[in-house]
């Protein structure tokens, strides 16, 4: 039964991975930008949450909307200024700029917050609280809650892209920037909105990460970016639900690996990722686009 619990855990973690990943996927789909600083943004959000709590003493869950709005605004500004500048100068420049941002953020966080990890403190009882199915399957409330939150966010994002005016514009600009301009859309503004969404979703994920484990300056690239990327690759580009599937596959693979040997946990995930990279670079559910 340990195996079943582990797999369920992995599945639930997959939701969080998908939440990390959807912003990365969005920015690439719309602007063709691979944001190497993506993982670090989640960490920034986590630390913002720490700061907000320190100042206002509000409950952790309330920090989510506050931090999301803050990060979305930061995302829009950053996109319209630096990232847009990099985009117009080419892919190489964009990679260098996002890489530079990543290094700056990580080292900056390290300077201000030291390299120690921090948690967002949901209260010990909540972290370990769980319910049981049958006598042996244990499901922690927090993990389940985060998974549900992730699914809700993905659903919301999907609806937004399908039904609203700006959602359509985002998809249109992603398809054909010039044609969108001819219809009156300022693509830089649309890019900004997409970036704001990406920053917002990764902020939610960052706070959840802070609740479920701890955050530290380096996990942005050590784990988050790579897991997000792996989820996107495994699940395939261009599909939000594919990203969820990718996240789940990654989470389950890690859980299985951890069961066999605790230090194999990250390796197992990377193994799956490399396998997919070799066999089918398009991922599991893409429409055949090249990675």
């Amino acid at each position: 039964m340990e195996w079943v619990n582990a797999i369920i855990q992995g599945l639930l973690t997959g939701g969080l991975y998908a939440l990390f990943a959807c912003g990365l996927s969005l920015m690439f789909g719309v602007m063709k930008v691979v944001n190497l600083a993506h993982g670090d943004l989640a960490v920034v959000a986590g630390y913002l949450g720490v700061g907000v709590i320190a100042v206002t003493h509000m409950p952790v869950l309330w920090t989510i909307p506050v931090v999301v709005v803050l990060m979305a605004v930061i995302g829009y500004i950053l996109q319209r200024s630096i990232i847009q500048g990099a985009i117009s100068r080419g892919e190489l420049t964009t990679l260098i700029v996002t890489f530079g941002l990543s290094i700056i953020i990580e080292n900056g966080l390290q300077q201000f917050f030291t390299a120690n990890s921090r948690g967002l403190g949901v209260g010990d009882s909540f972290i370990t609280a769980s319910f049981s199915i049958g006598s042996q399957i244990i499901i922690p409330w927090l993990n389940l809650g985060i998974f549900v939150l992730a699914v809700i966010v993905l659903l919301g994002l999907n609806q937004y892209l399908s039904v609203t005016k700006y959602g359509r514009l985002i998809r249109a600009v992603a398809d054909d920037r010039e044609a969108a301009q001819l219809s009156g859309a300022d693509y830089r503004h649309v890019f900004g909105i997409a970036a704001a969404i990406a920053f917002g979703t990764v902020a939610i994920a960052g706070i959840c990460e802070g609740m479920i484990t701890t955050i530290s300056p380096t996990i942005g690239t050590d784990t988050i970016l790579l897991f997000a990327f792996a989820s996107v690759v495994i699940g395939g580009l261009g599909s939000l639900w594919g990203t969820l599937l990718g996240g789940i596959v990654l989470g389950v693979a890690q859980a299985i690996g951890a069961q066999i040997n605790p230090s194999w946990e990250p390796l197992a995930g990377y193994a799956v990722f490399l396998l997919v990279l070799v066999i089918r670079p398009q991922g599991l559910t893409s429409r055949g686009a090249q990675a």
Binding site: L36, L92, T94, L226, F229, L274, P281, A291
Partner: peptide, 21 residues
Amino acid sequence: WLVARLRLGYFAIATWVLASV
């Protein structure tokens, strides 16, 4: 051989992943 087919941005992240591995 693992990363050769990837386009620029994904090549970058893939090399990062490989280094971690």
